[in-house]
């Protein structure tokens, strides 16, 4: 069985205890999306402001476990100041990091080429790599991806 240290890396606990970009921007003008994890009751609210093509501000509201909250916090830090296209690239790279290992877990096969985060040009996960251990705890993958799916909804809202 994988150890707790694989899951709860120090940087994750740091983001959990001191979440970055916490709160909610006034909407409108901010774009707003809510995400729920129906299994555990976690809720995430993403509000973001875009100027031209740049995500100039982004805040995270809601409540949840250390994995969902730290993932949201790290996401906010990674996305703020990036272009919308770069933000979408990060989403892809992050989800790839989650699902590559999801696939490995059940097949023990080679990582799927298409899902390789390195294949996502310009997407540097940085601190977010700390969440890689989550894939060893499949039940928690949904916690880690909640804020990212919510971000996608907010970006879709922006572009529609």
């Amino acid at each position: 069985m994988p150890g707790l240290e694989d899951l709860y890396r120090e940087i994750i606990l740091d983001h959990y205890r001191n979440p970055r970009n916490r709160g909610e921007l006034e909407s409108p003008p901010a774009h707003r999306a809510e995400g729920f994890n129906p299994l555990c009751g976690d809720e995430i609210v993403v509000t973001l402001l875009v100027d031209g093509d740049t995500v100039t501000d982004l805040k995270i509201g809601g409540q949840g476990c250390s994995i969902s909250q730290s993932s949201a916090s790290m996401m906010s830090a990674a996305v703020k100041g990036k272009s919308v296209a770069e933000a979408r690239g990060l989403v892809k790279a992050f989800k790839a990091m989650m699902s590559i290992h999801e696939a490995e877990l059940d097949s023990d096969g080679e990582p799927d080429e298409v899902l390789d985060p390195e294949a996502e040009p310009g997407a540097k996960l940085g601190d977010l790599e700390a969440l890689r251990g989550v894939v060893k705890f499949p039940v928690r993958i949904k916690c880690a991806t909640l804020s990212w799916n919510t971000l996608v909804n907010a970006l879709d809202d922006l572009e529609s």
């Binding site: 150890g3 707790l4 899951l7 709860y8 555990c40 476990c65 250390s66 928690r140």
Partner: peptide, 12 residues
Amino acid sequence: LHPHDISQVLDQ
């Protein structure tokens, strides 16, 4: 502690 985290540690 969030219940999800409690349950995870207890599972160990």
